[in-house]
């Protein structure tokens, strides 16, 4: 049976791991390759590396980091941040990444999804959506949650799927950093609407939150950052807990 996935996310700035609380106020959390290797040993199923430095220099540093990750880590990993065109995708896949995650660039130019799927296959293309719950609606945001758009979560996710997205990574800005659980109601609606895997993101604080996002939220994978970086939840402990709760995970 296909296992539910646990995915630690590492936000990278100038070659180091950081994590935002509600997308601002960063705290340092270690060396990205070391941290990734440690997560892999503890039983992480995949890793996500997000480049949050937008500068040209930062991008070069990040590409070098991707090469080091590919050389040292034997589980799949996704990279995102600063991907605006096909040649960015080519550069990162050539450096050894398994998948790319696109966010603002896809909102600005949805055709990019189609181009990635055609050139590299749908399985490579993760569409990340940052959305905030406001006025009884889920509104998609650009630029790491700074600029609201006209797009609504469910419509945009369906559009992304039809254009060839291989997975949806949905971050609830409403839940991110609050550590009170994932946006399970919205996640379950996405699961009902779509036919591609959904990665839940934003809100993990306790082990129960992971269980709930797999059962109530029907997510295929759960992403988290700070609870892992600061050792609040151990990945091995989490997986044992989930298996005891009847959820199929890789041990």
């Amino acid at each position: 049976m296909l296992a539910k996935r646990i995915v630690p996310c590492l936000d990278i700035k100038d070659g180091k791991t950081v994590k935002g609380i509600n997308f601002v106020n960063f705290r340092d959390a270690g060396d990205p390759v070391e941290l990734g290797a440690q997560y892999s040993r503890e039983g992480a199923d995949e890793l996500v590396y997000l480049d949050i430095t937008a500068s040209h220099e930062g991008r070069k540093t990040f590409t070098e980091l991707v090469k080091k990750v590919a050389a040292n880590i034997s589980i799949p990993f996704t990279v995102g941040g600063g991907i605006n065109e096909l040649k960015d995708v080519d550069r990162l896949l050539s450096a050894g990444a398994d998948k790319v995650s696109i966010n603002s660039a896809a909102l600005r130019n949805p055709k990019l999804i189609e181009d990635i799927a055609k050139n590299f296959g749908s399985q490579v293309c993760v569409v990340a959506i940052d959305a905030n719950y406001e006025n009884n609606d889920w509104i998609c945001y650009l630029n790491g949650g700074r600029i609201p758009t006209e797009k609504h979560l469910f419509q945009w996710a369906a559009e992304a799927e039809s254009l060839g997205a291989g997975e949806i990574l949905f971050t609830s800005m409403t839940h991110d950093g609050v550590k009170d659980g994932y946006a399970n109601e919205a996640l379950a609606t996405l699961a009902e609407n779509l036919h591609i895997p959904i990665i839940a993101s934003g809100g993990a604080g306790k082990m129960e939150h992971f269980r709930d996002t797999f059962t109530l939220g029907k997510a295929d994978a759960a992403l988290a950052a700070s609870v892992f970086h600061f050792g609040e939840i151990g990945i091995r402990d989490l997986k044992h807990y989930l298996r005891e709760e009847g959820i199929n995970v890789r041990l």
Partner: peptide
């Protein structure tokens, strides 16, 4: 060929 809604294609992830 998916047989039910939960059957997603591609088959992606860890399996035994």
């Amino acid at each position: 060929i998916p047989q039910k809604h939960e059957d997603k294609v591609p088959h992606m992830g860890w399996n035994t």
